[in-house]
Design a protein around this nucleic acid. Structure first.
Length: 520
RNA sequence: GGGGGUGUAACUCAGUGGUAGAGUAUCUGCCUUUUAAGCAGAGAGUCGACGGUUCAAAUCCGUCCACCCUCACCA
């Protein structure tokens, strides 16, 4: 034990030799790798060189096998060593970069004794550079014959070994890295060992790119609005609270993008969109992560019908760009995006499904029917919340093909404009596909006095104990008082959209680093 | 939060009260066109954590932790 002074503090430091450290703290596999690392250095080779070289990506070689074999061109590839089959004075391996996987062939005679010694010290997972020429082995496998093997980066921890065998044209995997918890906690291993995971995130990136492309072409302007907000709003949800030291105030992480976007519509930007994260301090499960990505867009001089048209076009665009067709397959279900999609009012759908007519908004009648169907809501609930609950329980799971559910109760839509001639309803729709909600849109309320009344009503609900009710945002109301044009707004949950397009039923599969509890 | 399930070697998994196992990976030896390379040998474990029952616990009981499924709430 030795004591040293570090930044003015006395720190105790237990000194251990490398050997003791290995014996005491590390398992055998790590010790072996550290020994190999030391041996490489003893051979005068830098296991972490500053420069590397790559003349060809592996995919390029695989796509032009005959050409590279006949030209005998000397090429240099770099990648991670994924397999090793050594046999005496010759060895085979597999090298992967992000474009593909190729067999390498290293022969002692060819690379020389010293270089072969380095090759023998390589492990699975090491980064390696191979210089050589392409050829076909006796078994006919396209390979690169090394003239020189260079270590680019030695790994110290063993990569789980996944092996594959082709049986009847299908790849069979052995010792797959499949522990779900480990896959999420160590996503880098998941990506490395499970190719379909990488595919999921490639599709995710493509979808987001195509959404931008679609909206940019329609003259929407991409914007960024605050994540840290003095007041939160735009959705029914509980927020995360954080603190700013200099201002000495609590701030909220946004739960929606809506209120800032509408300020920009007031400011004369007629079409805006944002793809960003929202944060909701609520339960976590297969379809909920505390932070999740949303697309929101607002279009001046438009209403919810325009938003339905836009949604249809956008989803169709995505299906065509990702799968090159107008439908996708989720599980065993074919989802068809061909226009036009069904548009039906919430109350009609309830009537069709249960034979119950809620159009008169008779609270006692609706609550009794809800109770009979196992729906019990707290005392702040009016007929609107009961209608929504009935819909969610009885109708929602049955909406498999894309369906716009339109005309929501005013009670649960404090930011949407009333439907003309129907004082209890608003011009609002939610999009349902495969029994899940994918989008939410309104003809936006632009009457500042009406908006104030609605938010005040929310505020009263909050006082009665509704923790998800909206708060009154005076700055937003003031913006409306300067005048907002008629506007249509739309929100789409990106993560769920990715789930649908990648055939995943857990949100954790489409978020690179999903929230997990820390390990004790 | 309720209910159900899982947790054993680096990975995938056997193991129902009596000396902790297999395949892969790792190490040693042999092997100059292999490919889930092969053959021979070796090392490797806090059996999720803590407590209890027992002569004896991976195994039975209890508590806790993590993850999965499901229900409730939410996007």
């Amino acid at each position: 034990m030795i004591k040293i002074i570090f930044l003015g503090k006395v720190v105790s430091w237990k000194i251990q030799s490398d050997h003791e450290e290995i014996m005491e703290n590390l398992n055998q596999l790590l010790a072996v790798k550290k020994e190999k690392l030391a041996k490489i250095r003893e051979l005068g080779v830098d296991p972490y060189p500053t420069r590397c070289k790559r003349t060809h990506k592996i995919e390029l070689l695989l796509d032009n096998k005959d050409k590279f074999v006949s030209s005998e061109e000397i090429i240099t590839i770099s990648g991670r060593l994924k397999a090793m089959r050594r046999q005496g004075k010759v060895g085979f391996g597999n090298l992967s970069d992000d474009s593909g996987n190729i067999q390498i062939f290293v022969k002692k005679d060819k690379v020389g004794e010293a270089n072969y010694e380095v090759f023998k010290l390589l492990d699975l997972g090491d980064f390696v550079q191979i210089e050589g020429t392409c050829f076909f082995t006796q078994r006919g496998e396209f390979s690169i014959r090394a003239q020189k093997v260079t270590v680019l980066g030695k790994s110290l921890l063993p990569l789980p070994t996944v092996k594959e065998k082709v049986v009847d044209g299908k790849k069979e995997r052995y010792d797959e890295f499949s522990d779900i918890e480990l896959r999420y906690r160590k996503r880098y291993l998941d990506l490395l060992l499970n190719p379909e995971v990488k595919r999921t995130f490639q599709i995710r990136a493509l979808i987001i790119k195509e959404i931008r492309d679609f909206l940019d072409k329609r003259n929407f302007m991409e914007i960024e609005t605050p994540i840290l907000q003095p007041l939160y709003g735009g959705a029914q949800a509980r927020p995360f609270i954080t603190h700013h030291n200099t201002l000495n105030i609590d701030l909220y992480m946004r739960i929606a993008l809506e209120l800032y976007h509408k300020r920009l519509i007031v400011g004369g930007i007629e079409r805006v969109y944002e793809i960003g994260k929202n944060f909701r301090n609520e339960g976590m499960d297969r379809t909920h992560n505390p932070e999740f990505s949303m697309l929101e867009l607002y279009q001046a001089y438009a209403d919810y019908s325009d938003m339905m048209d836009l949604t249809e076009d956008m989803m169709l665009h995505l299906a065509k760009k990702v799968f090159n067709k107008e439908s996708i397959t989720f599980g065993k279900t074919e989802i068809n995006f061909k226009k036009p999609w069904k548009r039906a009012s919430m109350i009609e759908l309830i009537k069709d499904e249960c034979g119950f007519d809620a159009s008169d908004f008779d609270f006692d009648k609706i609550r009794d029917f809800g109770n009979k169907n196992g729906i019990e809501l707290d005392k702040t609930a009016g007929s609107g919340k009961y209608i929504e609950a009935l819909f969610e329980k009885m109708v929602e799971p049955k909406l498999i093909q894309p369906t716009f559910v339109i005309d929501f109760p005013k009670e649960i839509s404090p930011l949407a404009k009333v439907k003309p001639g129907h004082p209890n309803l608003t011009e609002r729709f939610e999009l349902f596909i495969n029994g899940n909600e994918f989008g939410n849109a309104f003809t936006e309320l632009n009457d500042p006095e009406e908006q104030r009344k609605r938010l005040n009503a929310q505020s009263r609900l909050r006082e009665l104990g509704d923790v998800e009710a909206n708060v009154v945002d005076e700055d937003f109301l003031e913006a409306l008082e300067y005048g907002m044009p008629p506007t249509g707004g739309l929100g789409i949950g990106i993560d769920r959209l990715i789930m649908l397009f990648t055939n995943n039923s857990s949100i954790k599969e489409v978020i690179l680093f999903p929230q997990m509890k820390p390990i004790e």
